[in-house]
Each structure stands twice: as structure tokens, then as C-alpha cells.
Simulated assay, not measured.
Amino acid sequence: MWRLVLLVILACASTAHAHRGSAKYVVVERTSEGASIDVELEVVDAAMELGLGEDAPASAVLARGDDLGALLARGITIGDGAVACTAGAGAPSEVEGEDGPPRLALTIDYACPEAAGDLVLRDDTIFPTDAQHEAFVRIRFAGDTDAHVLRAGRQDVALGEPPSTVSLLGRFLVEGVLHLVTGYDHLLFLLSLVLTAGGLALREGMRVALRDVAIVVTAFTLGHSVTLIAAALGVIVLPSRLVESVIAASIAVVALLNVWRPDERRSMPWLALGFGLVHGFGFSGVLAELGLPAQARVLSLLAFNVGIELAQLAFVAVMLSPLAWLAGKPGYRTWIVRGGSIAIALLALVWLVERATAP
């Protein structure tokens, strides 16, 4: 059993970069002729779509600007299901001064037949070659906005009326759940925090272990909620490279503490609180990409945070009972606690180097 658990830890750790797949940003506005969209995509994605290779510079992609515009105009369609709108793309340009990978921007205008019904945008670009690709779509109405994330297999969005508040809250709650579930580094940090709780359950009982874990999770919640809200509202903004690097370092620190002192639990709430402040900036990244709707800004932010908490509590609840059971088996401390923590720490250190040195 311990071998299976260790393999699960390693498999989860090895995919921790997966939720950092490429992203595209689409802003949609309805016009008298139909619609207009502003598209931003990463240079590497544009280069791959054009067959230039992932190392092609922005200058090489811009030299093929007409081809890129035509490709996006064909791949991002707007229509009513029966009739497609006619698309015309402008020239691409580099996006200056943005945090993260270099991006290109261009505008596509759509002329739709007068008889067209309810319009739907569909994005078929990049998804076939990058299953982790996400398209963050923001739809502007008069005084209102709507926000969606398109993922492989769910690549359509209706361009209808402004959404209801209930619809927005449900959508942001789900996005909060998905962000934690696909944020493997956040999950591994939580696992590192509770990995030694199985031994506590064996020594002092499940009730004591549950109380201990509840305190740790509450401390983590307090920490990341403060910075998530502050970052999402624009009060404090930190460079993503710094945030992601410190998140990786936080995993390594807690994992190495488990190796050094596997029975130490008193410091866990403080570590959870302190590093939770940094993880909150990581959680806020998806909100910055998605954009909080103007008509329900605070409520959408709270719904996103609640979604994170629900996923977090579910993860901890699922992990605690197996850890308590494993604590009574030979090799728990050696293979599960120390072995698992060493594996997590090594992967975290690799991520730290990758993130700190990323261009």
C-alpha cells in the first residue's frame, strides 16, 4: 500500500506544471454589424500554429502576420449555428510590459447577417495541440461584463444577454474549485501540511488529529484569503515569477520539515498562515486573467474563494483517513512521511529553479 501511495504522490508531483498551460485572452464587444474581438495569445502558441517551432521569436511570427490573422479568423468563429459571420483580422502587434510569457494582440471584426439569431463564439485554435490550453473570454455589455473560461471540449460561449448574479456566482464558485483541483502545487502544499497528521491520529486519536488539521487549514485559509482579496481588487500586485517561485519554495520547506521532524505539528499553523499569504497571490492569478464582472465584483470574488475552500476541505477530508490508517502500518514514517516528503521536496526544488529562471 505504501508503494502505491508514494507512486500517487510522485505522479501528482510530476504533473504540477500542467495547470500552467498556455492561455489566450479574448475580449468581445457587440457592434452594429455583429461583433468585434480583441485577442491576445502567447508568441509560442502563435509560432506553433504557424508551424515555425516553439523557439521562433516574435519577429518571425509578426513577419507572418497575415497568415496568423487568417488562421485565427478561421478558428475563432461567431454565428448562430446555421449561418456564420464573416471575419476579418487586423495586423498583429506585440504586447508590451506584460508579466509572463511574451504575447501578441490583434483585432478581428465580424459582420453578421441581419437575420442571424442568438450568436455563439467558438474557439478551435490551439486546443487540438495543447489539451491544457485555456481561453479567457470577457464579454462587454452596456455597463455589465460576463466572464468565461473555455477549455478543451467546452469551447463555446453564447453572446447573449448579461448574466444573472446567481449565474455569475455559480460560475466563479466552480472556477474556484477547478483552480485548486488543477493547481497541483497548492494541493501538494496542503498534503505536506497534513502528511504527518496520520501519526498524530495514531498517538492521540482521530479527534485530536481532526482538530489539529482544522487549525492548520483555517490558518492557510486566513492567509490566502487576505492576499487573494487584496490582489484581486488591485490593492497589492506582485510579479507572477516571484509568487510562483515562493510557492514552490513553500512546498519544499514544509516537506523538508516533515523529513527532519516528522512529529512536529506545532509549527504547521504558522507555516500555513505565512505561506498562505503567498499562495493567495497565486490563487488571484486566474481572477486577473478572467476579470471580475463589474456588476458583481465582490460577490464573484467571494464565490471564487468559497470554491477554493470547498475543494480544499474535500481534499483534506479525503486524505486524513487513509493517512491515519497507514500510520498503523510498518514503514509509515520511513516511506510515507519521509519518503513522500523527500519526493515532494525534490520536485518543488526543481519547480523553484524552473520558475525563478523562466524567461
Rank of each mutant, 00 (worst) to 15 (best):
G65S: 14
A197V: 13
G143C: 06
R64D: 03
H133Y: 13
V157R: 00
V194H: 04
S267I: 06
L222P: 05
V8F: 01
V306M: 11
A23N: 15
G90L: 02
F141V: 02
P162A: 11
L242T: 14
L238H: 08
L273M: 08
L257M: 12
A16Q: 09
R261P: 14
V254T: 15
E49L: 14
L168F: 01
R261V: 01
G307W: 00
V95Y: 00
L233K: 08
C112L: 02
A70T: 07
A327K: 02
F136C: 06
A70G: 06
V350Y: 12
A255N: 11
P92C: 06
A272N: 07
A272V: 01
G65Q: 06
E42N: 09
G160E: 00
R30T: 05
F283W: 00
V353C: 08
V254P: 14
H19E: 11
T145H: 09
A152R: 14
A60N: 02
I108M: 04
A147N: 15
E96C: 12
V213K: 04
E134G: 00
V213E: 15
A131M: 05
V318D: 10
G280Y: 00
L159R: 05
G183H: 04
K329Y: 11
L222H: 03
D185G: 06
A219Y: 04
G340M: 03
T227E: 12
G97L: 09
P113C: 03
V254S: 15
P128L: 07
Y184L: 14
S192C: 11
A63G: 14
A152K: 13
H279P: 09
T31V: 05
D55G: 13
S225L: 02
G307M: 03
V149L: 04
R266E: 09
V181P: 09
L68Q: 01
V246F: 11
F141R: 01
A13L: 03
V254G: 12
I78K: 07
E244H: 04
T86N: 04
A219V: 04
G97I: 12
A296N: 01
R211S: 15
E204F: 13
A73T: 05
G280R: 00
A158Q: 03
V243T: 11
E94S: 10
V26Y: 01
A288Y: 08
A214D: 11
G199S: 04
G205Q: 01
S225I: 00
R266Q: 06
P293M: 02
H148Q: 10
G282E: 00
E204M: 10
A87Q: 03
G339E: 12
T165M: 09
I236T: 05
A303R: 01
W2Y: 02
S300N: 09
L68H: 03
L290Y: 07
P57W: 07
W260S: 14
D66W: 06
V157K: 00
A111T: 10
S225G: 07
D109W: 01
L301I: 04
M206G: 10
D67G: 03
L180G: 15
A219I: 01
A201I: 10
A16R: 06
A327T: 13
G65A: 08
T334C: 02
I229S: 14
L62P: 02
L238S: 12
V298S: 13
T165E: 12
S167G: 05
